[in-house]
């Protein structure tokens, strides 16, 4: 059960070519995640959170360091394998949604299933069950341009969850949601996490959303800065998170 699902070792990411001005977005980040874990990532804007997710999800390549997912070093995988891996094993909720504006909400959500060759008979119930959890049943036939920001975010979440992937990478999935909708999205994720042993890595600025996690990694300037575990209730964990965030704010930390 306690197999490692993700093993990140000494990850570096430098933007910009050698000749240009370079920027170190990730600076030797190392951590591991066991199967079924629910990990949060927090840190100030520009800290490198999205970069970290992109490298883990194989969308971007690391400058050096290794990323192992379920024991396989993804840096050695072939292009086609990576694509298959992303479509079957990963669910990605992007910070900027990334919905296809030429497809309806329903078609957007159904796409990962279609791509995996799931039979048409099974697609509809799967889509309907996930949209019911996220409360977006009424907009299924609309196009992305005609729905609200929060609705878009939930559609993006539905698309990432619909095929019940082994690892969900979520980049601020609750950023555009009110607290009620944020809570129901988080509960959906917890449900998946507990009932389907889906591993989840969640980037968020919202302490309340973060309190659903079992463990929080704090990142600053591309480095792992602190790590806290949830020992008691969610309420207590919420308080712990707020405390750490308060330290961030204090200037003496540098």
């Amino acid at each position: 059960m306690n197999q490692s699902v993700l093993d990140v070792h000494q990850l570096n990411k430098i933007y910009g070519k050698k000749s240009e001005k370079q920027f170190h977005a990730l600076n030797g980040v190392s951590f591991a995640m066991t199967e079924g874990e629910f990990v949060g990532v927090m840190g100030p804007s520009g800290a490198g959170k999205t970069t970290l997710l992109n490298v883990i999800s194989t969308l971007d390549t690391a400058t050096n360091g290794s990323v192992k997912i379920a024991g396989t070093d993804i840096t050695t995988m072939k292009q086609g394998q990576l694509a298959d891996f992303r479509s079957s094993q990963l669910g990605f909720i992007f910070q900027d949604f990334n919905l296809l504006e030429n497809l309806t909400v329903y078609e957007n959500i159904a796409l990962p299933l279609s791509l995996q060759g799931v039979s048409v008979r099974k697609i509809k119930p799967a889509v309907e069950s996930v949209v019911a959890k996220l409360g977006i049943e009424s907009i299924l036939n609309k196009y992305p341009v005609t729905i609200s920001g929060g609705q878009k975010q939930r559609v993006a979440a539905a698309r990432a969850l619909v095929h019940e992937p082994a690892l969900i990478l979520a980049d601020e999935p609750t950023g555009a949601l009110d607290s009620k909708n944020a809570r129901s999205l988080m509960e959906t994720m917890v449900h998946l996490n507990e009932n389907h042993t889906t591993s989840i890595m969640l980037v968020t600025h919202d302490p309340l959303s973060a309190s659903y996690c079992e463990r929080i990694l704090f990142i600053q300037d591309g480095k792992l800065y602190k790590e806290i575990h949830r020992n008691g209730t969610r309420g207590e964990f919420h308080q712990d998170i707020l405390d750490v965030l308060a330290q961030f704010a204090s200037p003496d930390l540098g």
């Binding site: 969308l59 086609g80 694509a83 992303r86 990334n98 791509l115």
Partner: peptide
């Protein structure tokens, strides 16, 4: 659009 498809893991073929 094609880059979005790539992100959700559509094979190039």
């Amino acid at each position: 659009r094609y880059s979005m498809l790539r992100k959700i893991g559509v094979r190039k073929t």
